[in-house]
Structure formats: C-alpha cells, structure tokens
Nucleic acid binder design. Structure first.
Lengths: 200, 200
DNA sequence: ACTTGGCCGTGACACCTGTCATCAAGCGGC
DNA sequence: GCCGCTTGATGACAGGTGTCACGGCCAAGT
C-alpha cells in the first residue's frame, strides 16, 4: 500500500484527484492539502511515501515544498503535477530532487503509474518536456529578473528604481539588457517571453 | 439517472473529475470531451441531461458551447466549471443561458450538488461571484478592447495601427481612452486590469 | 435643415523608453 | 600592487507613449 499525500490549491481539482487515486487499490490517499505549508505539516505527521503537488500554491510553492522535503524528510518522494510546461520549472524541480514531473495535460492513468514508478525509486518525467528542458538556458541574471517582473506589473522605470533602491538609469539599463538578451523589442514582450519560459 | 457530459481540456483533470462523478450513484458520465467541438458532437449524439464544461478550451470555448447548446439543443443544461472568477465571464455565461457557474476553487462536493440542482431546473451560481458580477460594468468599447489586446502582446502603436488599418495617432487615442477609463497609468496596467476582470 | 453623438484623424507637447558610450567603486586572483 | 570583472551610475539621443484640443465625416434623431 503506497501512502500518498495530495497538495493542490483548487479544491475541486483536489477532490477530483483524490477520487481518482482512491480507485487504485494499491494507493492510499492519507491526506489532502490546500497549500504548501499545510502539505509540509501533513508530510511530517502523516509520513507519506509520495507527495503529489501542484507548483502554484499559496504560502509555499510546490518547488519550495520539494526542496524542503528533500532536505528534511529525504525518505519522502515528490511528484510535481502542474499546468505549466515551462522548461525553467522542470529544471528547478530536478534541482530540488523531485521524483516526477507530470503535466495536467497528460492522461489521467499516468498519475497512478507515475506514483508507482517513483515509489519503486524510478523517475517519471514528461517525455516531451524533458527534451525541451535542455533546449534553452535562462540568460537572465537576478537583477534583470527582478526588474522584468516589476516591469510586467506595469511599473515604470522610476517606480522600479525606488523599489529596488537603484537609479532610474540603471533600471533602464537592466531592462535594455534583458530585452536584448531575449531578442525582443520592448519590455512587454520580454516579460511575456520570460514568463512563458518559466524564467521569472 | 442524470446523464452528464464532461468537457475539459486538461486530460488529468478531466479524468479526475470523471472519477469524482462516477462515485455518485445517481450520475452517469456518458462522455468526456477534450475541446468544445468534441463536446458539441457528443452532446448531439449522446443527449446528456447536463454538460459540465470548462471555459478555456481549444476550438470552441465553454461560453460559445453554452450558446450553441441553448440555440440548438435547448433541452440540455450547461454548467460552467472554471478557474476564472471574472465577473465578465459570468455575465457572458448568464447571457448564454447557463444553468450553473462554479469555480474550481469550490469544494468538490458542490459539483454533484450543482448538477442535481440544475437538472431539477434550478441555478447554481457561485455566491460570492454573483455579487461581484453586478459591481463593475465593462467600460470599454470594441476598438479599445482590440487595441488593448494587441498592446498587451507587446505591440507598439504603429504595429497595432497597421493591423487594424487605423492611424498611429488614433491607436494612441484609444489606448489613452482605455487607460483613462480604467484609472490606471499605462497600457500594461490597463491590459492586466481588463484581463483580470474578464473584459478582453 | 439642424443638432447630437460616435468614430477616426491630426498636430503639438511633455514625458517615458531603449540604446549606447563611459565612468567610478569594489573585489578577488596571481 | 595591477589586472580583470562585476555592479551601478550618468548623460545624451532617437524614438515611443500618453494627453489634449480640434476638425472632419456620417448616421441617426428632432
């Protein structure tokens, strides 16, 4: 009997996934968490074999959760289950030592399969995504990322400068750098591209 | 026995919701569709009592599907099940005559309940969303929406002008109008706000 | 025929953006 | 020490953006 903990912020999806896994006779859903923090609590008390988690969650993201689990509960495996086919996310997930990375686009049967495979010590990485992951590296540095994030929220160079304690000119330099590196022609496109790639 | 058709583009979620509904003894999931077009085909052949559909789907959105169902298969009820708590979406859904509008944030039990209620001829609208829906009207006209959509993709006034066969100055006027109406200070914020409200 | 209102365009202005060359301070490394 | 490197600042410039006033056109209303 494989003990599974489910972390997913959308209640409807959480309940549905739970129902899905309960159909499998060799899986035991020992808990459901609505955010990363709750998942971490339940992981410590419930001692699941595998944690299935979304990435975008309140309080603690799935990636942060994975990292913490590896550091402090290395016996527990983590599988990321997310909407986002972003190479950057997969990269970071692998860095955090996850056992699996599945997309919500994948057929439902794959989830139980992945849980069994990871529990046996294997890895379950979405195949087409695995290819993409090594196709493009994040060219941005920390400052460029920060600046781009704020620019994407509609902030002007001046506002960004205040927030980051830089001069306005420096902010514009970083933005210009980012725009150049990404091969686009303005901050909006730069933001969209970086976001789509999972680089923010 | 209530016959249910499920339309949802993410396979994992589709399968999970199907598993969830199959736990209910009075519900019969007669089909699952991965896009709006497939859902429409299955709705015609399978004659479900209720269609549960996501909004964002390939080929035909949930809103368009709802409209078509009301026009050509008025006996079939539609329930929208979506991530997006956007007043504009709810408004359009109600205009399309849907029987229910649920959020994926809602507890899983509500789905079966909503299906039963709608099948009995009732309505199942997410309560907090119903309030919001009448709180703010879309102040934008068609041109402003078009221009804002393109601006949000990072296009400059010149590029937008070419695409819409307008002059660059006119495009800037529309953008300025939209920015003013939304009470923000640049096109990026205007785009984000309009998008968040479901007005694009 | 006259007015009203929506749609589109123009021109002018201040300000913001994106680019580039350049400079200064700090920080390991050999 | 001197070197190379990084981080941040500065100033200048062309071009884009946001605002505004104004003018023409056309389809209703009256």
């Amino acid at each position: 009997m494989i003990k599974v903990l489910l972390a997913e912020d959308q209640a409807m999806v959480r309940g549905a996934l739970s129902a899905l896994l309960k159909l499998e006779s060799d899986l035991d859903v020992i808990g459901c968490a609505a955010d990363g923090e709750e998942a971490w609590q339940l992981a410590q008390t419930g001692k699941p074999d595998v944690v299935v988690t979304d990435i975008e969650m309140p309080k603690l993201t799935g990636l942060e959760l994975a990292q913490r689990v590896r550091e402090r509960e290395p016996g527990i495996k983590v599988i990321i289950l997310t909407t986002f086919a972003r190479p950057g996310f997969l990269r970071r997930a692998l860095d955090a030592g996850v056992g699996g990375y599945l997309l919500k686009d994948a057929p439902a049967e794959q989830l139980a399969e992945a849980i069994r495979k990871v529990h046996r010590g294997g890895r379950a990485i979405d195949p087409q995504l695995a290819l993409e992951a090594w196709s493009g590296d994040d060219p941005l540095n920390d400052r460029e990322r920060q600046v781009l994030r704020l620019a994407g929220e509609g902030k002007s160079a001046g506002e960004i400068a205040v927030q980051l304690h830089l001069s306005q000119g420096t902010v514009r330099n970083y933005l210009s750098e980012a725009i150049g590196k990404l091969g686009v022609s303005n901050r909006i496109e730069a933001y969209r591209l970086a976001r789509q790639k999972g680089w923010l």
